[in-house]
Design a protein around this nucleic acid. Structure first.
Lengths: 208, 208
DNA sequence: TAGATTGTTAATCGATTAACAATC
DNA sequence: TAGATTGTTAATCGATTAACAATC
């Protein structure tokens, strides 16, 4: 299953809208919001209409209503629990990151095969991988972040899918094989960098 | 400027091909490679043909030739230098990550406004932001990773673009305004997680 | 040869953009 | 009212997939 682009855009709209709200604005037009988020006004209106969001002709959209509706769409009334599989560099950075709270996301535990990394006393505990299934079921976790090395990524995915995980954010540069009810999103920092470098080489050649 | 999808796929092909090579395979068919990377065989052939890569009818593609050609496309004969702007959680994780070497990518320096973070003695130095322009010009850096907080991301972008950076990997959840000769790639871990959570909620509803 | 695979052209699909009536 | 903005339908665009001739 693939992530819809309009979902991603909705999250970007929310970001801009929050900023606008903080600046004291109450109303926004598709034109403004589009400009702010790098999207065409038509696209903004279409996205909104697709999610049943209504504006007022000539009057634009009320920012606070928009934010409430978007929150509603993402069910932001309850905290979503997430686990991290692999407590290496990226895994640890995610564990230390404080910014998820405002998204109503809570990293509840991490798992690793290396006993050196086990830490049950700190705020977010790091458990041996064997405990994964139990924790996932006990805390009813549906989402996981995989930050293990490439060669064990598929293995990790199989394990967490068996434990009942429905959404995986995968940092390994592998396409994970998974059943259709599991949604996977891939982030590969190395590939992103290489693409960027490729494009700058290419643009240089075209000298434009 | 936007990143082409076929570039990303090419990098995925390379990954799979390397693995296959390590396993002792010498030849691959579009069907195999497609299956391995989650891409249709037609897509594989089309991508290859677009980059001028030729196979042999009935004979498939030679893995080592493919790898050499892909390396060539990405100019992997010389090391590409990259800087990190913002030495917080994610920034530091990237500084510590050892996996870029095999991509011929070298993180040469990081920059921060917080003096506590300055470390000139370690392998990858962390400088005050004021030194950015000088370092970028001296080392002829074309690519940067932005890991600063959202509210200063645009400011950071302006600074590095002025210094001559052509490609930006942006971790802040903002669409950066930039001139057309600059390529920007956005990674927002928070949004990715929220999208995943949204999809798992939605799939649950559909109970499929 | 017969069967399999490439390489390319045409068809399809989905997403974005343009156009414009509705209306405040 | 006139001008501006929404909401939706139609047109366009690009990317993916299907089809199939070429050929090993």
């Amino acid at each position: 299953m693939i992530i819809n682009k309009n979902i991603t855009r909705l999250l970007r709209y929310r970001n801009s809208l929050k900023r606008m709200q903080e600046l004291g604005f109450e109303t926004v037009y598709s034109y403004n919001l589009g400009k702010e988020t790098g999207v065409s006004p038509e696209q903004v209106r279409k996205d909104f209409s697709q999610f049943g969001i209504k504006g007022r002709k000539k009057g634009g959209y009320k920012i606070n209503e928009l934010l409430l509706t978007i929150s509603d769409i993402f069910r932001k009334d309850e905290i979503q629990r997430v686990i991290v599989v692999g407590a290496g560099n990226i895994g640890n950075a995610i564990l230390q990151y404080k910014g998820f709270e405002k998204y109503m996301i809570e990293i509840v535990a991490a798992f690793d095969i290396n006993p050196v990394k086990y830490k049950k006393r700190q705020e977010i505990p790091v458990y041996p991988i064997e405990k994964l299934s139990a924790v996932v079921q006990e805390l009813d976790v549906k989402t996981a972040i995989i930050t293990v090395p490439e060669r064990v990524a598929q293995e990790a995915a199989n394990l967490i899918i068996a434990a009942g995980i429905k959404g995986i954010l995968n940092f390994a540069p592998t396409i994970l094989k998974s059943p259709p009810h599991v949604t996977i999103s891939n982030i590969c920092i190395g590939h992103e960098l290489e693409s960027l470098i490729y494009h700058s080489l290419y643009l240089e050649d075209e000298s434009k």
